[in-house]
Design a protein around this nucleic acid. Structure first.
Lengths: 341, 341
DNA sequence: CTGTTAGCGCGTTCAT
DNA sequence: ATGAACGCGCTAACAG
């Protein structure tokens, strides 16, 4: 048995197979490629035999070098610890596997410099396509890449980058949220968003919030951000009077977590003192207080669609840029079942 | 501007750079490699110039083909939606990035056949090392791979595979849990585990639980599994009498989620009716009832260590197989602050 | 210091 | 139906 520390055995190559089978490399190549039907029965059998006595596996990198197909897809993620990103990634990975692709995951931790490094790395791996879920600064690098391979944006638009986009229908979803809140009797709404920072989905949600409320004269809306100021913003909101029952609308999972934590610390009785509807569904929402009402994104489908979109481009789909807007699904829990007062 | 759908521009190659700079490929190779100091000032400048007017990036695959170094690490994960796996992956990814490696993530969704397919794919990509967090059936493929490259197991041992292992010190952690429960006044403990299925960490935790309780005559312990039977097991446990204050001990994040959900459905007043200590820390633990006491694994460190272990092997570390046992950190919350009765 | 040459593992003509 | 020869983009061994 070989030692752990010295994995020294050299990989078995196409030549080894050819030698053992007593044929040429070309025949082996045909066998593992699409041209298997061009081989005689006897030679095919000998090759097959040789392949599995040797445990031969074609080297995808060498193939890629020649044919330009590495069966590798890159995914650039801003925050791998965001449940949304994970869920989408799971969808992407599933689709990849189904079609024989593998996934190179690059997490930037919201750092622009890391994003640049990752983009450079990805370029060097001959990936066939790229899924982008970041702010997309470094337009130069992105364009460079986009001129070489198909790209699809997830959740976040990137200005001046003409690319397919798959994400949530933010306008419709915000409308859904406000419809539900209004119907449940809430009148004074505070939206909590992560700092927008040019993240298109956040901007769209906040804009849709304001625009939509303009058409609901009996409701009032305000917006605040997560971070240092959230604590005082919440406190102020809770102390205000006169605009009717209050509810919070959190713009994504992170915002929901921060907000719920603070409510908890502020000693709110969740959710009798105040309503809450959250964009994004997390598995612990049923467990907090009387349960958190949410608008679930079809994250798995979003991931699958992103990959399939890429695949279609790889196969030469010449259509102009497409936008996939998915709807959200409302899940009603205790946080919007207003107590009769 | 080129059309979205036809990313046709061929990649700029080392030859292009050499031509533009009026030098040989070898010089360009030296420039981008370790041998830059062997170049004259003037030629280096010309190459540099050519590189960034052309936007040249070396093709890592071609380099890998020649040198055997692809700067690619594979990670095989059983369940990408498990928060533990994500957290470890984040650590791995961070360490990868720091050392110029990229990560190919393979999720098996607990499916043996998918595991096999992924292993085959990974072999074809000339990855330099492999991090394994699955059951590791398909011993054959694993051994094959292990004979070609360094491997490190995370959290789960694989029988008959001699490989470095990084994970939690399960025995010490279980002791910590029981110490805490005992000290907090609990006497009747039900451990909830996911089905063991030969997963070493689960087996170790359950075994440690039983063994440890054997030395605590005033305490009683039982074990049950998540799934269909959990509901009735919990109900039975709650209805039992005579062995003193009751607490649950959940063996990982998934078990905690299932258990808490059921307690919620059963109408328990969390956590006055029953204590709870959870192995693994999740971000929503503070929010449920009076908060869930947990034993946090140093997941980030585990991931980083896994990668660094690999790296050390890649650099020729000849030491025998190592096992890294990390300690857990106790975080006390309301779920083990027993109400005076 | 620099260029020439020969592969790395494989796909693809082009003959045969 | 099969094999020989060349090249993918790059590194390494050898000259000079």
């Amino acid at each position: 048995m070989n030692s752990i520390s010295t994995p020294t055995r050299t990989r078995v190559t196409m030549n080894d197979v050819a030698d053992l089978a007593g044929v040429s490399k070309a025949s082996v190549s045909r066998f593992i490629g699409e041209d298997r039907q061009l081989l005689s029965e006897s030679i095919a059998r000998r090759i097959e035999q040789a392949i599995d006595t040797l445990g031969y596996r074609p080297n995808q990198m060498a193939r890629g070098l020649k044919r330009g197909r590495t069966r590798l897809i890159g995914m650039l993620v801003a925050d791998i610890r965001n449940p949304y990103s994970i869920a989408v990634m799971h969808g992407v990975e599933t689709a990849c596997r189904k079609h024989g692709y593998s996934l190179v995951v690059c997490n930037t931790d919201r750092d622009h410099e890391q994003e640049r490094l990752h983009l450079q790395a990805l370029r060097s791996y001959n990936i066939e396509g790229l899924i982008v879920n970041t702010l997309g600064h470094h337009l130069g690098e992105l364009r460079e890449l986009h001129s070489e391979l198909p790209m699809v944006l997830v959740d976040r638009k990137v200005d001046e980058l003409e690319s397919d986009l798959v994400g949530l229908d933010n306008v419709a979803t915000v409308a859904q949220a406000l419809d539900h809140l209004q119907q449940a009797g809430y009148r004074d709404i505070l939206m909590v968003t992560e700092p927008q920072d040019g993240t298109s989905s956040r901007v769209e949600r906040v804009d849709a919030f304001s625009a939509n409320l303009a058409n609901r004269p009996d409701m009032r809306g305000q917006v605040c951000e997560t971070g240092e100021t959230l604590h005082s913003a919440l406190r102020t909101f809770l102390d205000q009077h006169g605009h009717g029952p209050k509810a919070l609308f959190t713009g994504n999972g992170i915002a929901t977590l921060s907000t719920t934590r603070l409510l908890h610390e502020l000693g709110c009785h969740l959710f009798d003192d105040i309503g809450l509807i959250a964009l994004d569904e997390l598995d612990w929402y049923p467990l907090v207080g009387s349960g958190i009402t949410s608008l679930a994104q079809p994250t798995h489908d979003i991931g699958v669609t992103a990959f399939e979109c890429l695949l279609s481009r790889l196969r030469g789909d010449p259509e102009p840029v497409r936008v996939y807007d998915f709807p959200a699904q409302l899940i009603v829990r205790g946080s919007t079942r207003r107590r009769r007062s």
